Amino acid sequence: MTRLDVRDIPPVNRHPTIHEEFEDLAPGETLTIVNDHEPKPLFYEFQAEVESFDADNYEVERVGPEEFVAKFPKVEA
């Protein structure tokens, strides 16, 4: 599992960084991101654009007022 805390990454760079990290995953692995808001727009973006994104097994949990942990699984081969 790869964990990426994007809270310190400038907002303009967050989605490209997340996409790069996701692409580096092997099939069946999960990218866990820590964000300062619920990543619904990112979920919809992945659902629409990333064929290997397993949207059915996506999970998000609010851990604190400005801490959301989301799991973006990659489809198994």
Rank of each mutant, 00 (worst) to 15 (best):
K40E: 13
E29C: 10
E23I: 12
E38Q: 15
P16C: 04
R7L: 07
D24T: 11
L42E: 03
T32F: 11
L31M: 10
R14G: 02
E20D: 13
P11G: 08
E21A: 15
T30W: 07
F22G: 05
L42D: 02
P10F: 10
P16Q: 03
L31Q: 07
L42A: 01
E20N: 05
D24E: 05
P11M: 05
E23L: 09
L42P: 00
Y44L: 14
I9M: 09
E29H: 02
D8F: 01
R7A: 07
L25T: 02
P10G: 02
T30P: 01
T30K: 09
T30E: 13
Y44E: 15
H37L: 04
H19I: 15
V34D: 06
I18P: 02
D24F: 03
E21Q: 14
T30F: 04
P11A: 11
R14T: 05
K40Q: 12
L25I: 01
N13D: 15
I18V: 14
P27Q: 15
P11C: 04
T32C: 06
E23Q: 12
A26N: 10
E20A: 13
I9V: 14
D36T: 02
V6R: 05
V6W: 05
I9P: 08
L25R: 00
H37G: 08
E38W: 03
T30H: 08
D24C: 07
E38F: 04
T30L: 06
L42H: 01
L42N: 01
E23W: 00
I18Q: 04
H37V: 09
L25C: 00
R14M: 09
G28S: 13
E23A: 13
H37A: 11
P39K: 15
F22P: 06
P41G: 12
E29W: 08
E21I: 00
H37F: 11
H19V: 14
T32D: 04
D24G: 10
V12G: 09
P41E: 05
